[in-house]
Simulated scan of single mutants.
Amino acid sequence: MVTAERQCKREELRLQAGERFARGEGSTSIARNLRVRVRSVQRWRHAWVQGGPRSLRSQGPHRCRD
């Protein structure tokens, strides 16, 4: 099980990536800068294209933001 702190940290990374998607940055550049795998960024981008920034919010039991 993922801790609330870890879940919120990952959400923050996804939201930062979403801001970069909106600016047109590439997945490799985003992954390198956020220190995550390119495949993760690609999954996040797919979710973002399908559902917008809201789709990058955590879906788990912990609430990171209001």
Score class of each variant (00 low, 15 high):
H46I: 01
M1S: 15
R10V: 04
R20L: 15
T3N: 00
E11I: 00
G60N: 11
H46K: 14
R23W: 05
Q42V: 14
D66A: 11
E5W: 00
L13Q: 15
R10L: 11
A22N: 06
R43P: 04
L56S: 12
Q42W: 04
G18Q: 11
L13S: 12
G51N: 11
N33K: 12
V41S: 10
R14A: 14
E12C: 03
R35I: 01
Q16C: 03
L15A: 03
A17E: 12
L15I: 13
G52W: 07
R23H: 06
C64W: 04
Q50P: 02
I30C: 07
R37I: 02
M1G: 15
C8S: 01
V2N: 06
V38G: 01
Q42R: 14
R65V: 13
V38L: 04
Q7R: 08
L34V: 06
H62S: 09
V2E: 14
D66C: 05
A22V: 14
P61A: 01
V49L: 07
E5K: 13
Q42A: 14
V49M: 10
C8R: 02
H62T: 13
A47Q: 06
L13G: 08
W48K: 04
A4H: 09
R63D: 11
R32M: 01
R37P: 02
L15S: 03
R37G: 14
G26W: 06
S58I: 00
R6W: 05
V2C: 01
C64G: 03
E5A: 09
W48D: 11
I30Y: 12
L56I: 07
E19V: 04
S29N: 07
R45N: 12
P61Q: 00
R43K: 07
R35Q: 15
I30D: 12
G51E: 08
A31M: 09
Q50T: 11
N33W: 03
V38S: 05
V41Y: 06
S27K: 08
R43W: 05
G52A: 07
D66L: 05
E11W: 00
R10H: 05
I30R: 07
R10A: 11
A47M: 06
R54P: 11
H62D: 15
W44C: 06
Q42L: 11
L56F: 03
D66E: 10
R10Q: 07
W48Q: 08
R14N: 08
N33A: 15
C64S: 05
V38T: 09
R10E: 13
W48C: 07
R63G: 15
S40V: 05
Q7V: 01
